[in-house]
Structure formats: structure tokens, C-alpha cells
């Protein structure tokens, strides 16, 4: 009984490790195809557009609500300390450093990541990738690389939009509902949010998340069993694995970058 359980755990761990290894090899094969995309910018633009626009509505709506809720919650605490005039920078910092990159990456995984995995998985299941190979067109270069590039470009842009919309949402609530002075909201924000420290912090995070989420999505799609069940599993795995990866990496990155500041 115990032996059996151990055996199962061992096999489970081995399978995970093997997948991890395969996904690394996969990336190693895709990356050399990225420079070649410079010769065909159309492919990347098309994918950036498809992936970015796909996630835009959900990112804008979510950003608005997160910003508004943030203003409400923070105001309640800050007013006790008489610090409500600093609402602007606190909302902005929370969004730019933390919530913008993380929440956008999670939404991106659910919306664009799953779609990417399903698209590539279905292309595999219907032999489209095979037929490309037989036409001497490498699917890693023609299909996977532009999508990887598109995802990596899209996520930082989406995060920026999320934060911008969130800050505006916070502004609406702060001035319209809570009576914070609108000049204070903006000027305090400008005085206290540092371009390099804070913005760069958020941008680094969202670039890392963009790489990881898109990588997981295209790998899962490409690695899917060529059946409808296989594609379904690939989409689920994409969302689960990339969400966990984003949250885990966020902790590591935050720890590293705060360590830098102090």
C-alpha cells in the first residue's frame, strides 16, 4: 500500500519533471525562430492584434472595477489616519507595482492563453501542423514564434492599460463619491510615483508574465494529444499552470525588487 503510494508519487513527479524538460526544449527550438520574424513583421502585428484585442474588453472592465474598489477600500483605512489626500499615489502604486501586472496576467491566461492553446492544439489534431511540415514550412517558426512574440508584446501593453484605467476608476470614486480633492489626487501621485523604481518594477513583472503565460499556452497547445479531449486538457492546463506560475513568480519578483530598493 505504502509502496504503491510512493510509486504513484514518484511517477507523478517524474512526469512533471519530464514535461518541464520538454517545455524547455520546446522554447529552445522556438527562440531561434524569433529573429526571423523581423523579416515578416506582418505575422507578429497580426498576432499581437488578435491576442491583444481579444483581451482588451475584459482588461478594461476589470481595471475600472479594481481601481474603484481599491479607492473605496483604501479610503476607509486612510481616512482614520487623516491621510485621505494621499489616496492617489497609494492607488497608483498598488496598481502599477502589483495589481496591474498580476491581475492582467491572470485575465490574459484565462482569455488569450486558453485560446492560443486551443488554437494550436486543434491545428495539431486536424493535421494542419503536419501538413505544414510536409510543405517544408516549420510550424515552430510560422505558427508558434509569432504567437509567442505577440503575447510577449501584448501583456505589458494590456497591463499598462489596466493600470491607467484603474487609476482613472479610482479617481472617479475618490473625487465623485468620497470628496477627495482632484488636484491632490493627481499632484500627490505625480510627486510620489517614481518612473524608474515603480513603473519599471511593473513593466519588468508584466514582461516576465507575458513570456511565461504565452510560453505555457503555446507549449500546451503544441504538446496536446491530437484529439478533442487532448485539446480540452491543454486549455485547462494552460489556465491552471500559468495562473500558478504568475502568482509564484510575482512573489519572487517582488521580493527581489523590494530587496533592491531598501
Amino acid at each position: 500500500m505504502i509502496a504503491l503510494t510512493l510509486q504513484r508519487m514518484g511517477r507523478w513527479a517524474l512526469e512533471r519533471l519530464e514535461r518541464l524538460g520538454r517545455s524547455n526544449l520546446f522554447l529552445l527550438h522556438v527562440v531561434p525562430g524569433l529573429p526571423g520574424l523581423l523579416a515578416r513583421p506582418g505575422l507578429v502585428v497580426q498576432q499581437t492584434f488578435a491576442i491583444g484585442v481579444l483581451s482588451l474588453p475584459i482588461v478594461v472592465v476589470a481595471g475600472l472595477f479594481v481601481g474603484m474598489v481599491l479607492a473605496l477600500q483604501l479610503y476607509n483605512t486612510m481616512v482614520d489616519f487623516g491621510a485621505e489626500q494621499s489616496l492617489g499615489p497609494v492607488v497608483a502604486l498598488s496598481l502599477v507595482r502589483e495589481l496591474g501586472p498580476v491581475v492582467t496576467a491572470l485575465l490574459f491566461a484565462g482569455r488569450a492563453g486558453s485560446a492560443l492553446a486551443a488554437e494550436i492544439g486543434l491545428m495539431k489534431a486536424t493535421e494542419q501542423l503536419s501538413s505544414m511540415e510536409m510543405m517544408a514550412v516549420d510550424p515552430l517558426r510560422r505558427i508558434v514564434a509569432p504567437r509567442l512574440a505577440g503575447g510577449i508584446i501584448s501583456l505589458p501593453l494590456l497591463s499598462a492599460i489596466f493600470s491607467a484605467v484603474g487609476i482613472s476608476g479610482g479617481f472617479l470614486v475618490a473625487t465623485g463619491l468620497l470628496g477627495v480633492d482632484s488636484n491632490a489626487y493627481w499632484s500627490q501621485m505625480r510627486a510620489n510615483v517614481d518612473l524608474f523604481d515603480d513603473l519599471a518594477n511593473g513593466v519588468i513583472k508584466s514582461v516576465v508574465f507575458g513570456v511565461v503565460v504565452t510560453w505555457i499556452a503555446v507549449f500546451e497547445g503544441y504538446d496536446a494529444a491530437p484529439t478533442s479531449e487532448g485539446v480540452a486538457r491543454a486549455t485547462t492546463r494552460t489556465v491552471v499552470n500559468s495562473s500558478l506560475a504568475v502568482l509564484g513568480l510575482d512573489f519572487i519578483l517582488t521580493a527581489l525588487m523590494f530587496g533592491d530598493d531598501t
Binding site: 486543434l122 491545428m123 486536424t126 493535421e127 494542419q128 503536419s130 501538413s131 505544414m132 511540415e133 510536409m134 510543405m135 517544408a136 514550412v137 510560422r142
Partner: peptide, 30 residues
């Protein structure tokens, strides 16, 4: 493979391209 043509059992057309673009695909790539 550029000198080999293969007709797949399922056809295996690229579903996001029109009939015209499917036939044009190898020409545009190569």
C-alpha cells in the same frame, strides 16, 4: 520536402485561410 507534395487523408487545409490563400500558401512561403 519542397520538392514533395502530399495530399493528406483529411485534406488538412489551414482553417484560418481561404481556399485561395491555402493554395497560395506554399508559393508565398517559398
Amino acid at each position: 520536402r519542397k520538392r514533395m507534395g502530399m495530399l493528406f487523408q483529411s485534406g488538412a487545409l489551414l482553417t484560418d485561410l481561404s481556399v485561395f490563400d491555402n493554395v497560395a500558401f506554399p508559393l508565398r512561403e517559398h
